[in-house]
Write a protein that binds this DNA or RNA. Structure first.
Lengths: 235, 235
DNA sequence: CATGGCGCTTGATCTAAATCAAACCTGGCC
DNA sequence: GGCCAGGTTTGATTTAGATCAAGCGCCATG
């Protein structure tokens, strides 16, 4: 494992409270690989041999069912996947694929479980991480079941502009993923995402490729009606 | 707390591995209440003062957003809610309401966190319970995003007949909840659920009130295409 | 036993989104 | 610099599901 990446991995909430020797145990048995885009790292149904850590790039968690496919999560560095499968040693429910050139650390699941048994702080961190994942999944289900596709897009844009340091009235974002991936995560087709962007034009939303300008966020908020119980990742 | 209920609560996976004194700590501070149907036990956004244990009856976990509402989970005895909120001490993301006369134990969240800090086996059980909740939520999101409403109903019936001890070709179930609640959980209106039942008639599905007869389960499976990665609660 | 309320079913209509097709645009590769 | 492939946009059409309305049936209550 390149020592360059270790500090960034150490700083992850999951690992931060770990005793040094416990962290060393995990890192010593891990290895790091760089993957080009569109490589399938995990296939749903498979056994979770590793806890993956995305160090650089981007990863999509998705699932398929008889010629249909949907995106369930989009991961940014630095983050782990899939802790719930690793800790319970049950088959992956989701597949994972790189969406851009990515560097991923693979930590053997057995090592994770060994340290989990031994290190109290790690157990605490795991509990909080699992609770966060579960809460994120509930928010996603609420988003999909309670809102129309235009409402989901509007709220997505408001979240993204907050994450990218925009103002409270105007802002600009660069979409972090291809539009067809965002469409899939939001539960719609790429054509429909395009039409949804179009229907937000009267609310001050202007699209130029991957660049999106928001010039009337009050108006957009009135349409979107954001709530921290769905839209705030930290809540 | 009535001593009648304590053995059933003790047998829950979450509490089974607890040391006797730790379990006593939880039970001593808890109290038990009986509620009539349609009582709101939890409101989303509120602070999680208690971990609830459903001892008898039924509870629906649901969420609302500007005049819209959806069911996110239907709980049967004996089960707990909402562990993720209790353990992280963050606001409830879902509301809970009784769907029939129910007996519910309320265990103070502080006691839960105290025992979590002190009892290693409890920490393990909590991790597994959270992972299970997260996995169930992923399966629900997959069901909602990947399947049509008829496919969701067909798979629901196949699951329910397996849970109620039906055969592999024919079976009969009693719907455990009102149809409008099942419709909400499956992500459709009551009218649409009725029509979905109707469109399953050619597949051997016959409805009489809350009683459902399945007389051609091979045919129904070919339509439903069940997969353990969505439909098996134990997988 | 009668009445009223709520859940469910059915019919008619509307709408949001998917599907299919075609054209355009952009970026990467030769 | 040109070409090609993939992503995106736009148009037309279809479809799944929602909405609205009305009627029926069942269960609980008086």
């Amino acid at each position: 494992m390149r020592s360059d990446d270790v500090p960034e991995i150490r700083e992850l909430t999951l690992f931060r409270a770990l005793a040094d020797d416990a962290f060393e145990t995990l890192i010593r048995g891990a290895y790091l690989q760089t993957f080009p885009p569109t490589v399938e790292l995990i296939r749903e149904g498979d056994s979770p041999d590793f806890l993956h850590v995305l160090v650089e790039g981007g990863v999509e968690l998705f699932s398929g069912w008889h010629r249909r496919e949907t995106t369930l999560s989009m991961l940014a560095p630095v983050s782990t996947f899939i802790l719930a499968a690793t800790i319970t040693d049950r088959p992956y429910l989701m597949s994972a694929r790189t969406v851009s050139k990515s560097r991923v650390a693979l930590i053997p699941s057995e090592d994770v479980r060994t340290v989990f048994d031994a290190d109290r702080d790690f157990a605490n961190a795991i509990v909080n991480e699992l609770a966060d994942c579960f809460r994120a999944s509930i928010k996603h289900a609420k988003n999909v079941k309670l809102r129309s596709s235009v409402e989901r897009l509007a709220n997505y844009l408001l979240c993204e502009v907050a994450a990218q340091g925009g103002g409270s009235e105007e802002g600009q974002i660069t979409l972090p993923y291809e539009k067809r991936l965002i469409a899939s995560w939001l539960g719609m087709t790429p054509e429909n995402l395009s039409r949804a962007f179009g229907s937000l034009r009267p609310y001050g939303v202007k699209v130029e490729g991957a660049l999106v300008h928001l010039s009337d966020m009050s108006s957009l908020r009135r349409l979107a009606k954001p709530t921290p119980l769905i839209d705030d990742p930290a809540s």
